[in-house]
Nucleic acid binder design. Structure first.
Lengths: 244, 244
DNA sequence: CAGTGGTCTAGACCACGCC
DNA sequence: GCGTGGTCTAGACCACTGG
């Protein structure tokens, strides 16, 4: 980290970004675990050999990406996939009135098969790659809200079949069981008509308009790790999006 | 700005936030106009009587909210509602394949009336308040994409009836004609069935599933200034949302 | 070449949480 | 009272832009 200013005219990267990447590497390697208190700014500055201000810029950037949580007076922690954070960060479907709540889940099926064309494209898989598929219904206040299909590359989730019950918060499961951190996700929304299967699962008439959310989730190294297809009833709920 | 550290234990506001608010005030007052080059960091620091670093934090925060555009070597500019920025910032409906494009608009109707319950709630209006309503169809590549109703509080848009043609980019119109800057927007998405009117405007069968976007746009002072109801065909397009 | 924003440093003080 | 992150300052140098 001594060659801070060698800036070969091209490929110049600010020091704080280099520091940030080296710290993200510690998250990827598992050297820093979710929930853990990391060293203070002063300690990191001494260890890495840069000023406290440079460490600060790196940590602030990581906190801005929800990888770290900074708490004045206490320290800096590695972000955890706990319910409330996931709810706020990754779950944009809100009841029309009342507070956002985490829906319950009921798993219908869990199968293994060859990834189809769409799944291979979304998950960057080769032909013939195997995937796990989880189908579940999620309810809010006792009423069905969404039918969901989660598709996981089998290669990234070894021992998936040996798993007992699948919990509601699967991102915590990915983290604890396979050390996979979901860092960001990209969603594509469309309006579709309920298929007979959807109608049955959701208890709605066939061809009811549903909000279809196709989500691809990415890990810390920006590899796609999950494809999720949700078909949502939006009679009493909506997808919330803030633009600025 | 001399009493930087009087911090009455409660109601403490960091200096850079106070500076930021005073600079936002210059935008609201029109002292700084869209597109204008504002004074350099050093000049502002001297004028306001704080360090360059504090000015920087304020300007960076404003740039993060897309109020300013900073360009190394050139200076800091007030953001303008130009096509490409609006497209990127406020228009999340993308073709399934190909680059995002700004759709064309054809205005069907322009009427004035009393705001209904929903409009009053969204725009924070009192009973009996008047609104303008613009109904238009937007097309992409010659095919109808969305039917849109724009609702504006008449009080905020004086002389609206004297307006000639309504341009495609209405945010630029708001800015140039009424000095209203749209700083952020909040959207609620649902799936609905096409009404007969929608079906006619969009040239689709009745009851086709449509993506319904209800957007409320806010000005620099965080007052709602526009309600927009869009019903979108999502056969060849989708709403894009990035979560991190 | 001068001027701008961007980075980096070093040091002081403040607000906060915990003991 | 101590250690943490948060703010504020001052100054140096770097990368980029335009004349």
């Amino acid at each position: 980290m001594a060659e801070a200013g060698d800036a070969a005219t091209f490929a110049y990267r600010p020091l704080y970004l280099q520091v940030k990447e080296s710290l993200i590497r510690r998250l990827i390697d598992g050297q820093w675990q979710p929930g853990q208190l990391i060293p203070s700014e002063m300690e990191l500055a001494r260890e890495i050999g840069v000023s406290q201000g440079t460490i600060r810029k790196a940590l602030d950037a990581m906190a801005g990406e929800n990888l770290l949580i900074r708490r004045q007076g206490r320290g800096t922690y590695v972000a955890e996939p706990e319910e409330s954070r996931i709810l706020f960060q990754f779950f944009r479907l809100m009841p029309d009135s009342g507070e956002p709540t985490f829906p319950t889940s009921q798993v219908l099926r869990r199968t293994r098969g060859a990834a189809d064309r769409e799944e291979r494209a979304a998950l960057a898989l080769g032909t013939g790659a195997a995937v796990w598929r989880i189908e579940r219904v999620r309810e809010l206040g006792g009423a069905p809200l969404m039918a969901e299909t989660i598709v996981l590359p089998a290669a990234r989730f070894p021992g998936f079949d040996a798993l007992g019950e699948i919990p509601n918060n699967v991102y915590r499961l990915y983290s604890e069981r396979w050390r996979i951190t979901v860092a960001r996700a990209s969603e594509r929304l469309k309006a579709v008509a309920a298929t007979p299967d959807d109608a049955k699962a959701l208890g709605c008439p066939r061809a009811t308009p549903l909000l279809r959310i196709a989500r691809v989730a990415f890990d810390l190294e920006n590899n796609p790790v999950e494809l999720r297809l949700s078909r949502c009833l939006t009679r009493d709920a909506h997808y919330s999006s803030e633009l600025r």
